[in-house]
Each structure stands twice: as structure tokens, then as C-alpha cells.
Nucleic acid binder design. Structure first.
Length: 465
RNA sequence: GCGACCAUGGUGUAACGGUAGCACAGGAGUUUGUGGCACUCCUGGCGAGGGUUCAACUCCCUCUGGCCGCCCCA
């Protein structure tokens, strides 16, 4: 128990049960417990003051997705490890070294999801959504987990907003996904550009891969160390390298577009036609490849537009996606084409700050209810309910007794009016209405105060317009 | 996984080889029913472990954490 400490905590502390390991009676134990309660590395608390941007984004995302006919889906944070091994890919970095994997009490190997698409496709199959009118369009908003070294815009728990359209091959689907990704960011006020590519399908990609490997094998000596490994492990990623030497080699490397089969080429052309028709700014980037194995045909990334003063600065993607026509078969054995996108919320928030984009300021209550004395407190609670029924925001702090501190709080909240309810007023059935700007006060009937305040605020609005 | 830098109250900072000031925030009061200003008082700190030293918050090492870059990705 606290020896001197703050009086104001003690009341509430008394009834708490004593946790045996938590009684810090000497320095050593105190230190240990301080460390034990530390935030886990790469994780983050989002405090009340920081909720604004996230909530704003969520509202925007939900509105957009719903308008276009996407229904919300929530899937568990935890899945069988094999789901991700099979879908994301066994030899990807994500699965190889970034998953939070453990054995549960029943002996199953389970993992915190490193991404959400696989779960959505799993749910699609598991709940027979292939019997619904196709395609099935869903969106999600939730946390993913990757055990990676934290840095700017990278956390071990991060949030993704995503859209998935499953059960349809039509290139209009790809276009819609790209369009919505673009619209979402544009409406938030971010300047972004889309990078688009097609990486073919199991019919044409192997042939291209063969050629790519052949090309690079001849130049192996000039490749950086990473790329020499990539050549063996994941040759497509050779195209992603930022080393100067590799960049040079890349410029003469075979390009996937030249190797696409008729079907893939056709599909890609039609997607691009849509993008042109919709005036979506995009760059064809024949070197764009993605880190997840399940992509086929269309792939894209959303990049922030580099600031004018440093156009060379590398930007990490705000989001990305593409088509995954083989994913369902890999997960369930049943064919179902699909296309989707996922967008990193934390990166969006960072980018908004970088581009000085402010979410519209949420206005707090315009009225504060102050009370003095027990009776007034009780009556105050009732009055507050009357305001709530009218859906009017009213600030209060019934935990405070002194009028002074309540007024201070009201001032900090920036309210226009403070309602002061004391013993005298309760007995008279009135309440004091104080205009915080001029300091003028008037007595109002307790029964009429809600309508009175409503009128005042409305008048003020008209005046200010 | 690799590399750079950093680590003082809730936040932002200052100083010093002899155990810490300041500002803001928070609480109480000057005004026991009245805010914004002012004043007074209070709460609260050297991330952990080891070493050098008579003495370390200060120097050295390790760990932990933060931040940034690479890798990868959202």
C-alpha cells in the first residue's frame, strides 16, 4: 500500500485485492515490476488524444466500401499456421521469420495473422459463400502481426483496411479495387500514385522466370549479395533491388509484359483501359512484384507522391494488392478467382502528417453542466439524461465538487455555456445559464433549460453564418 | 537478421565525477457558489545490470527500449 502518496487515489485503492507478486516493498521488486509492465517492443498504445485520425479514416473507409456494395467481415486474429504457409507462401519472409507462431493448449500450431486476405478466402470457402450471388465483396478493418524490426511506419501490430472481391474474373473487378484504393486516399487529401503491373499466371510466368534467371545468371558476378541469393530463392524479386549496379542490369532484363500469355495480356489491357477511362493516375511499372506468393495477373501498389524537394527519396508503399486467382484452390481445393487490396492505417496517418493533411477537427460539446452539492449532483445526472435524449453533447465532471475546478474544465473544453446547478437552484426548480464569453448569467426554469439551450445554440449558428 | 544514433519527472528540456534544476501539464489554495490573468504551495525523475573511482545521473561495457536506414512489407 502506498505510504505517503496521493490522498486522492487511496479511497479507490483500498478495496483492491492484493496481488501477491505485486507488493513492492523494496527497490528490487519495484524495478522488476516496472520492466514487466512495459509496452512490448514494436507495439503501441493509441491514447484517447490520438484516436482522431484513426476514427476519421475508419469512417471514411466504411462509407466508401459500403457505397460500392462491400459488406464488412471480421475474421479471427488467430488462425492455423498452415493457412498462412499455404497462402502467403512457405518461403516468403513473412512466413519464414515474421509470424507469431505458437502451439496452443490443444497441440495445434497457430499463428497471429500476418495479413487478412488468406482468412477472408478461408471464410469464403468455409461458409459456402460460393453459393451466394457472385462475386462476393467484403471489406475488413483489423490488426495484423509481424515480428519485424520496428521503424517508421512499421510496427509489430498494425492495422489494415482492405477490400476483397471473390468469385469473378472480370477485369472490371481489378479496376474497381484500384479505383476505390485511389479514391480512398484522394478523398482523405493525400497525393498518391498507383504503380501497376501484371505478373502473369501459372501458364506464362514460369517461362518468363526461366528467361529472367538465364539473363541474370550470365551477369551474376555484377549482382549485389542480396540479389545473388534472390536469384536462387525468389528471382522475381531481383527486379525490386535498389542497388545501383542491379538497377543497371535491370534496365535490360526481360520484361514480364513481353511474356504474358494471350489471356493475361488481354486482361491487363482491359484493366488499363478502365484506369484510363476513370482518370486514375498510374505508372506502368514492369518491375513491380509483390512479396506474397499468391498474386496472379494484376498487381499494384499505392505510393505517396514524393515531395518536390526530395524526389529521389524512397517511399514505402501505403498499400498494395492484386489478383489472386489461385489462392482459393490452394486453401480449399476449390477454384475461385479474386482480387483485393490492403492499406496500412499507421502509414496513412504518418503520411497525412507528412503532407500536412488534417482530419476535420471534431467539435466537442458546447455546453457544460456544473453542479454544487449532493442534491445538485443527483439532479444533474437526471438533467444530463434529458440532454442525451435530445442527442446534445454536454460536458460534465461529477467527480469534482468545487465550482471553480468545474469552470476551469469547462473553459478548457471551450464550451459556450455553462449550466450551474446548486442547492438553491434545485430547491427553486431553476438553473443558472452562464455565457462563457461575456460572463452574463441568467436564471432559467429547470424544465425549460433544454429547449432554452437548444434555441441559444441555434441562434448562435445563424448569427455566425 | 544487419547498421547508425539516442535514453533525465506525464511531456519538453538543463546541469554536474560528490545523487538533480526549469517550463508545460496535473493537484490544492489565494476567492469555503463562478473560468480565462496573476501569485503560493504540492505531486512527480536519472531504463536495467555490471565495471572504473573515495564518490557516478555524469566515464566504460552489456542488456533493455526508442528512433532512423537496409532487408522485407502495410
Amino acid at each position: 500500500m502506498p505510504k505517503k502518496g496521493n490522498k486522492r487515489w487511496q479511497q479507490s485503492r483500498q478495496p483492491m485485492s492484493q496481488e501477491p507478486h505485486d507488493i513492492a516493498d523494496d527497490g528490487e521488486k519495484k524495478n522488476r515490476s516496472k520492466k514487466d509492465i512495459q509496452l512490448l517492443r514494436g507495439f503501441k498504445d493509441i491514447l484517447p488524444a490520438d484516436q482522431g485520425p484513426v476514427q476519421y479514416l475508419q469512417t471514411k473507409a466504411t462509407e466508401l466500401a459500403k457505397f460500392y456494395g462491400f459488406g464488412k467481415i471480421d475474421t479471427p486474429l488467430l488462425e492455423m499456421t498452415s493457412l498462412f504457409r499455404r497462402s502467403v507462401g512457405d518461403v516468403t519472409d513473412i512466413v519464414e521469420k515474421e509470424m507469431y507462431t505458437f502451439t496452443d493448449a490443444g497441440g495445434d500450431s497457430v499463428s497471429l495473422r500476418p495479413e487478412i486476405t488468406a482468412s477472408v478466402v478461408r471464410a469464403y470457402n468455409e461458409h459456402g459463400m460460393l453459393n451466394l450471388p457472385q462475386p462476393v465483396k467484403v471489406f475488413y478493418w483489423g490488426s495484423c502481426f509481424r515480428y519485424d524490426r520496428p521503424q517508421t511506419g512499421r510496427y509489430r501490430q498494425f492495422n489494415q483496411f482492405g477490400l476483397e472481391t471473390i468469385g469473378e474474373m472480370n477485369p472490371a473487378v481489378d479496376a474497381e479495387i484500384i479505383l476505390l484504393s485511389y479514391l480512398f486516399l484522394k478523398e482523405i487529401g493525400l497525393k498518391v500514385e498507383m504503380q501497376v503491373n501484371s505478373i502473369g499466371c501459372p501458364n506464362c510466368r514460369p517461362e518468363y522466370k526461366k528467361n529472367l534467371i538465364a539473363y541474370y545468371r550470365r551477369k551474376k558476378r555484377n549482382l549485389c549479395g542480396d540479389c545473388q541469393r534472390r536469384l536462387l530463392k525468389n528471382p522475381l524479386r531481383l527486379l525490386d533491388c535498389k542497388e545501383e549496379g542491379c538497377q543497371e542490369l535491370k534496365s535490360e532484363a526481360p520484361q514480364i509484359v513481353d511474356w504474358l500469355c494471350e489471356e493475361c495480356k488481354n486482361h491487363f489491357m482491359r484493366v488499363l483501359e478502365y484506369l484510363d477511362a476513370l482518370s486514375i493516375p498510374y505508372n506502368l511499372n514492369s518491375f513491380l512484384v509483390r512479396g506474397l506468393d499468391y498474386y496472379t495477373k494484376t498487381v499494384f501498389e499505392i505510393l505517396p507522391v514524393a515531395p518536390d524537394d526530395q524526389p529521389e527519396r524512397r517511399q514505402s508503399a501505403l498499400g498494395g494488392g492484386g489478383r489472386y486467382d489461385g489462392l482459393s484452390a490452394v486453401i480449399s481445393g476449390k477454384e475461385a478467382p479474386g482480387c483485393g487490396v490492403s492499406i496500412g492505417i499507421e502509414r496513412l496517418v504518418i503520411e497525412m502528417r507528412k503532407q500536412s493533411v488534417e482530419p476535420p477537427a471534431k467539435k466537442g460539446p458546447q455546453v457544460f453542466l456544473a453542479q454544487i452539492g449532493e442534491q445538485a449532483k443527483q439532479r444533474g445526472f437526471q438533467l444530463l439524461e434529458e440532454f442525451r435524449k435530445e442527442k446534445m453533447a454536454v460536458g460534465q465532471m461529477f467527480a469534482k465538487d468545487s465550482l471553480k475546478s468545474q469552470l476551469e474544465l469547462a473553459d478548457k473544453m471551450g464550451v459556450k455555456y455553462v449550466l450551474i446547478l446548486g442547492q438553491k437552484e434545485v430547491l427553486e426548480g431553476t438553473i443558472l445559464m452562464r455565457d462563457m464569453e461575456g460572463g452574463v448569467q441568467e436564471n432559467v426554469d429547470l424544465d425549460r433549460v433544454v429547449t432554452e439551450i437548444k434555441k441559444k445554440l441555434k441562434d448562435g449558428k445563424i448569427r455566425s453564418v
